[in-house]
Amino acid sequence: MTDSRSGDGRIEGTGDPLRVAVIIGSTREGRIGDAVGRWFMERARDRTELELAVLDLAEFDFPVHYPGRATDQMTQFTEAIAEAEAYVVITPEYNRSFPASLKQAIDFAYDEWQTKPVAFVSYGHGSAGLYAVEQLRSVFTELHTVTLRNGVALDFLQQPLEGRSGDFGRDRAVGLMLDQLGWWGWALREARAARPYVS
């Protein structure tokens, strides 16, 4: 990344830190999603130009059936989505798709997602969750977001989560993804301030 950084790690000229919601999409018992979330946050925590907040869907008590009126938990989630300026979605791959819990949560919001960038950390066995990501790209395109080309894909058949000591390949993938997320996040922040979005 060519932008210079100040002593505290913030990219110069970007103003306030970019508010990033890190969404853990799996709610399944015995999941590894929370461990993947911790793994990611350990690698992102030094990025002081980003203000990271974890939204773990397993910690929300969402209704089984979509109600006529939003519950307090639904409102809490959509307010967090509205507050964020960028997103990192952590998703497993179940039968070549992403979890129903994640789709349910995504659908609770609409305007709140618009004109913001979305990055993906996916995991699985063999495909590294990339089938899930491709389907999520279509969903987020419908919501008027910008999805990043670069992401982080973890294949647990080839390598366990923690991997080898000094696993620079995965660390580089996280760094590049966050660089791109920041670029899009600040560019879209400025664009939203300059003119209203047409949808």
Rank of each mutant, 00 (worst) to 15 (best):
A82V: 08
A82Y: 06
E83S: 15
E83N: 15
A84W: 09
A84R: 06
A84Q: 11
A84F: 09
E85C: 14
E85W: 10
A86V: 13
A86F: 11
A86T: 13
Y87M: 11
Y87L: 13
V88Y: 07
V88G: 06
V89M: 11
T91I: 05
T91A: 05
T91V: 08
T91K: 00
P92M: 12
P92R: 07
E93D: 06
Y94K: 02
Y94L: 12
Y94C: 02
N95K: 13
N95S: 13
R96N: 12
R96I: 05
R96Q: 13
S97G: 13
F98P: 08
P99D: 07
P99T: 00
P99F: 04
A100M: 14
A100K: 08
A100P: 07
S101D: 08
S101I: 09
L102A: 03
L102I: 10
K103E: 15
Q104R: 08
Q104L: 10
Q104A: 02
Q104W: 02
Q104P: 00
Q104T: 12
A105K: 12
A105W: 05
I106W: 01
I106L: 03
I106P: 02
I106A: 01
F108A: 00
F108I: 01
F108R: 00
F108K: 00
F108D: 00
A109L: 08
Y110M: 14
Y110H: 14
D111K: 11
D111R: 07
D111V: 12
D111A: 14
D111N: 04
E112D: 14
E112C: 12
W113I: 12
Q114T: 14
Q114E: 15
Q114F: 05
T115D: 13
T115K: 01
T115G: 00
K116G: 05
K116N: 06
P117W: 00
V118T: 02
V118W: 01
V118I: 07
V118K: 00
A119Y: 02
F120M: 05
F120N: 03
F120G: 04
F120S: 03
F120C: 08
V121C: 03
V121T: 03
V121G: 08
V121L: 14
S122L: 08
S122G: 09
S122Q: 11
Y123H: 11
Y123V: 06
G124S: 03
G124Q: 04
G124I: 05
H125C: 07
H125S: 08
G126E: 05
